[in-house]
Amino acid sequence: MSIQPHLPKQVKIVEVGPRDGLQNEKETISAAIKTELVDRLTQAGFANIEAASFVSPKWVPQMATSTEVMAAIARRPGTIYSALTPNMQGFEAALAAKADEVVIFGSASEAFSQKNINCSIAESIARFEGVAKAAKDNGLRLRGSISCAFGCPYQGEVPLDAVADVVGRMRDLGCDEIDIADTIGVATPRKTQAVMARAIEAFHVDGLSGHFHDTYGQALANIYASLELGIAIYHSSVSGLGGCPYAKGATGNVATEDVLYMMNGLGIATGIDLDLVVDAGQFISQQLGRKGSSRAGNALAAKRAAA
């Protein structure tokens, strides 16, 4: 007797490698390489690619070429190209670069908010009111990202009520989608379902996404746990790009190839060509001079090479 849980028939994968994945790389990556990476991901069929970040180059030097990259990429109609915008200056740059979606961010952890941006959660969200209004006035999609929703490097446990509160604040700003992020990768499936269930109470399930890091190897299990609740949007990073600054040596973002391999096995449609994503992962790994951290990507590449 087989037990088939009720899972979504289709999911949207938001590819965050070009922004969230590359931003912590120490060696400067040229705009041409970033552009080719985005173009390869576009060709693979992603409906949403996080391609740029309009933050101060002083704080995130790797993203200093965002304007150049956004001007050079070969855009596919229907694909959403997103940019992180921390303030109105960043928003104006994103608007000029023809971003389709701007991303604002806050933390579910009061300690994390104070440590990183020296203000409370409420103050941090209030700072985005101008950006949110400008996005709506200009017809752009608005996405809100909530970090440390499952645990914090400073305070440890994050109350479910705190997550729901920030979801509500993001909702009230007019966000079309809200990301629930396991920034340090500490979640396990039961905790994941508790957090997601609370988020669903504060926002419609169709607009919630899971952003899981694989620090402790739990990301795929947490995605499956979220699928069981009807969450149908997930973030991932090609070749597992991205580290976790709070856990030395941790891989950070869950690898796109691994997520796609699981979705294919579950019979869940993504509209994405896994073979082309493997190619993109091998390409960027070669450019960075190291082996990628996607198990499925490396296995498929090795199988291909042996054929």
Score class of each variant (00 low, 15 high):
residue 135 A to C: 15
residue 136 K to L: 08
residue 136 K to G: 09
residue 136 K to V: 13
residue 136 K to T: 10
residue 137 D to P: 07
residue 137 D to H: 12
residue 137 D to F: 08
residue 137 D to R: 10
residue 137 D to Q: 13
residue 138 N to F: 13
residue 138 N to D: 11
residue 138 N to E: 15
residue 138 N to P: 12
residue 139 G to C: 13
residue 139 G to E: 14
residue 139 G to Y: 15
residue 139 G to N: 15
residue 140 L to V: 12
residue 140 L to A: 15
residue 140 L to H: 12
residue 140 L to R: 10
residue 141 R to Q: 13
residue 141 R to M: 12
residue 141 R to W: 15
residue 141 R to G: 14
residue 142 L to W: 06
residue 142 L to P: 02
residue 142 L to R: 04
residue 142 L to I: 12
residue 143 R to N: 11
residue 143 R to P: 13
residue 143 R to A: 13
residue 144 G to P: 00
residue 144 G to L: 02
residue 144 G to C: 09
residue 144 G to V: 05
residue 144 G to M: 01
residue 144 G to H: 03
residue 145 S to C: 13
residue 145 S to F: 10
residue 145 S to R: 05
residue 145 S to T: 15
residue 146 I to P: 02
residue 146 I to R: 04
residue 146 I to W: 01
residue 146 I to M: 09
residue 146 I to C: 09
residue 147 S to H: 07
residue 147 S to Q: 08
residue 147 S to M: 11
residue 148 C to E: 06
residue 148 C to K: 03
residue 148 C to H: 06
residue 148 C to D: 07
residue 149 A to Y: 01
residue 149 A to C: 13
residue 149 A to T: 09
residue 149 A to F: 00
residue 149 A to E: 03
residue 149 A to N: 05
residue 149 A to L: 05
residue 150 F to G: 07
residue 150 F to S: 08
residue 150 F to K: 06
residue 151 G to Y: 01
residue 151 G to I: 04
residue 151 G to F: 03
residue 151 G to P: 02
residue 151 G to H: 01
residue 151 G to D: 01
residue 152 C to S: 08
residue 152 C to D: 07
residue 152 C to R: 02
residue 152 C to W: 01
residue 153 P to C: 10
residue 153 P to W: 04
residue 153 P to G: 11
residue 154 Y to H: 14
residue 154 Y to F: 15
residue 155 Q to K: 11
residue 155 Q to F: 11
residue 155 Q to N: 12
residue 155 Q to I: 15
residue 155 Q to Y: 10
residue 155 Q to E: 14
residue 156 G to L: 09
residue 156 G to N: 10
residue 156 G to V: 10
residue 156 G to R: 08
residue 157 E to L: 14
residue 157 E to V: 12
residue 157 E to R: 10
residue 157 E to A: 15
residue 157 E to Y: 11
residue 158 V to E: 04
residue 158 V to I: 11
residue 159 P to W: 06
residue 159 P to F: 08
residue 160 L to Q: 05
residue 160 L to S: 08
residue 160 L to A: 11
residue 160 L to E: 06
residue 161 D to G: 12
residue 161 D to P: 00
residue 161 D to N: 10
residue 161 D to Q: 09
residue 162 A to Q: 03
residue 162 A to H: 03
residue 162 A to M: 05
residue 162 A to G: 10
residue 162 A to P: 04
residue 163 V to N: 00
residue 163 V to F: 01
residue 164 A to D: 00
residue 164 A to T: 05
residue 164 A to S: 09
residue 164 A to P: 02
residue 165 D to R: 00
residue 165 D to S: 10
residue 165 D to V: 05
residue 165 D to F: 06
residue 165 D to L: 06
residue 165 D to K: 04
residue 166 V to G: 00
residue 166 V to K: 02
residue 166 V to I: 09
residue 166 V to A: 04
residue 167 V to S: 01
residue 167 V to Y: 00
residue 167 V to G: 02
residue 167 V to C: 02
residue 167 V to W: 00
residue 168 G to F: 03
residue 168 G to C: 02
residue 169 R to E: 00
residue 169 R to P: 01
residue 169 R to F: 01
